[in-house]
Nucleic acid binder design. Sequence first.
DNA 1: GAGAAGTGATTAGGGAGCTAACTATTTGGG
DNA 2: CCCAAATAGTTAGCTCCCTAATCACTTCTC
Lengths: 175, 175
Amino acid sequence: MSDEADAANAAPSLDQARRQIERYGLSADPQSVLVAVRLMAAGARLGQASEVHFARFGLSTGRYRLLVDLEDHQGEKSPSQLAASLGVSRATVTGLVDGLERDGLVARRASAEDGRGAVVVLTARGAQRLRDMAAEHFARLQALVSGLTPDERGVFLDLLARITQGIGALTAETP
Amino acid sequence: MSDEADAANAAPSLDQARRQIERYGLSADPQSVLVAVRLMAAGARLGQASEVHFARFGLSTGRYRLLVDLEDHQGEKSPSQLAASLGVSRATVTGLVDGLERDGLVARRASAEDGRGAVVVLTARGAQRLRDMAAEHFARLQALVSGLTPDERGVFLDLLARITQGIGALTAETP
DNA sequence: GAGAAGTGATTAGGGAGCTAACTATTTGGG
DNA sequence: CCCAAATAGTTAGCTCCCTAATCACTTCTC
């Protein structure tokens, strides 16, 4: 393991948070700041690891999520619906579908009801890809959280949900 | 709130996880999978919110982290050191410094000891920018986790650290 | 001490996401 | 009934981060 990997693994410390707060004579709670910063760091690292994971199957996180969403809806959904359920913009869906279509995992069809609309269809090849990767995928996800007992996982879900509600505080108009 | 915003806020459910696992006749634990998926979703949402937050001050998450890291080292550090401590590639540091230099928050100097090396220096303007945003920044971070009691924050830090150790399971060679 | 190997920084190019602007179609109000 | 407003999808152009390749300098080895 190189310095670089070590540093990437090194989580920010409570002392760093304290020092930063004191530098400006503020009264923020260092532990609260640490939780926020650690969660951000963990999210970023997990996101990158996720891309590495999916790249093994010729996918990305976004592409995989789109395929699964499609499979959960009988293999058919409009780009707008996909954008809504994935929580990304329609433009992003266009890009993801472009890539998946190029690989033959998905196909585009014109909508029967709406002349403006389109339908994205999961191909046999796309369904097969999901089948091929399922065992390894879920095994790795399970390994990710294997450091926690079932009870602890329940607690974690609860706490995470409550922090998630606070995300609005970062983007809200008034501090 | 539109459908889109609702969907973005809607966390993946335990039933979705269960359905996915059963579809392939696997034996993975749905709750474990749910924890992994929720954490990824939360990380992605937090990352985006973070960009919105820092954009208010003319920065991005990466640029802010670089400035803080610099400030923590007497305002001077080489690009390689920055890459290591931020956990990003040297190429990324080049890009971040390009942007910060354009805004006058940072300057590049040649290294005295090593003819190949460079030193990134925090300018007065960069230090001022950090000072200007500190109060609001920390207040928002604190608000982010205000849904948790101090005890719960401690528990969360512990659980998060243990999951973070499991991230390697996603990228490891052998499943 | 000169060539080979290693290291620091940058450049080039790619993927994922975004917003804004554009096209085509549908819907709805006068 | 027809024109204006809304909606579906795409395109263009931006940022962030990545890897791989390149250039310049240092260090190590013989």
